Amino acid sequence: MKRPGPLLTLLAGLLLAAFMLSLNATTGTRNTSARTTKESPAPTVSPTPSRTTPPPSPSQSPVPVPDAGYAGRTDDDSAAVAVNLRDGRAIAYFCDGRDRESWLKGDVNDDGTMRLTGKDGSVLSGTLERSREWGRIRGTVDVDGGHHAFTADRTKKPSGLYRATATVRGARVEGGWIVLPDGRQVGVLTREGRPSPAPWIDPGTGAVTVDGRQLTALPAAP
């Protein structure tokens, strides 16, 4: 049997060398990729800044209902209405200047609404107009079976609501007066429960003469 010649031996060596080079190249690439993957640092994620919610702005303090007086006429011009406010309370007076009158009292809500009642069953429902800086009351009065809408504007002295009580010549006397912003006066004087038109008072001093006796009418307080 003949031995392979030198040419075959050389060819076998070349094939073996080519195979080894190919194997080394593949192994090197895998090792490099593995090292790169292993050694690559994790990407740095910048922290998302937290959103700071601004504190809610404090609500605007409500404008308090003022201590003030209001006076005006009913819409049908048949009577007058006056209201005095103090410390969240109200006193009101309705009168026609002849023989119809009613005193009413009650609370005033923070929003300017009020429901005042009288001993005779009368009811005044009113609202202070905030848009006018509490300068006007719009409402209705139910008294003696009648329903009267009214408007009362804020007063300045000597306009306003006045009241006087006394015993004159053995009779119980009670008077109520509304001095309107234009100076007109509307009032009723009751003697032992019998109403009649009230005499004129001096708005500056409150002085009034009843059956020969001088009395002093004072601003009505709730």
Rank of each mutant, 00 (worst) to 15 (best):
P56W: 04
T165S: 13
R138T: 14
W134A: 11
G170H: 01
R100P: 00
P219N: 04
V123T: 10
Q185A: 11
G187C: 07
D75C: 08
G145M: 02
V188T: 14
A217V: 01
A221D: 11
N109M: 12
S196K: 09
A71C: 01
V186E: 06
M1K: 09
T216Q: 12
A92R: 02
A217P: 04
D96Q: 07
A171W: 06
G88E: 06
R51P: 10
V143C: 06
L104I: 04
D77W: 10
A34M: 10
D142W: 01
F19T: 03
P199I: 02
R89H: 13
S78K: 10
S122P: 09
S33V: 15
V186Y: 02
P158R: 04
P47Q: 05
V45T: 11
V65H: 00
R138G: 14
R194W: 08
P66H: 03
S131M: 13
R30F: 09
P43T: 13
D75R: 12
T205D: 08
P195H: 05
P55M: 05
G176D: 05
R154W: 02
I201H: 01
P43N: 10
L7I: 14
A164I: 03
G187A: 03
S78Q: 11
P6R: 07
A71N: 00
V168N: 08
L128R: 07
G146Y: 03
S131H: 13
G121M: 01
R51E: 13
G212T: 04
D182L: 00
D202G: 05
R100T: 10
P203W: 00
D111S: 09
I91E: 07
W177E: 04
V210R: 01
W200H: 15
V168Q: 08
P6E: 09
D75V: 15
T209S: 15
S59V: 12
Y70G: 01
L8F: 07
A12N: 06
S22K: 00
K105F: 13
P181N: 06
S159G: 09
P58Q: 09
R213Y: 05
A207H: 13
K156Q: 13
P43M: 11
A79C: 11
R86I: 02
L10K: 04
A42W: 15
R86H: 07
G112A: 06
Y162N: 01
G176S: 04
L21E: 03
G135V: 04
P58S: 12
R154V: 08
I91W: 02
E129S: 14
A92K: 02
W200F: 14
G170D: 09
K156T: 15
N31L: 14
V186G: 03
Y70E: 01
A80D: 10
T151F: 07
P49H: 08
N31R: 12
A82S: 09
R100H: 08
R98L: 14
P199F: 03
I178H: 02
R3D: 11
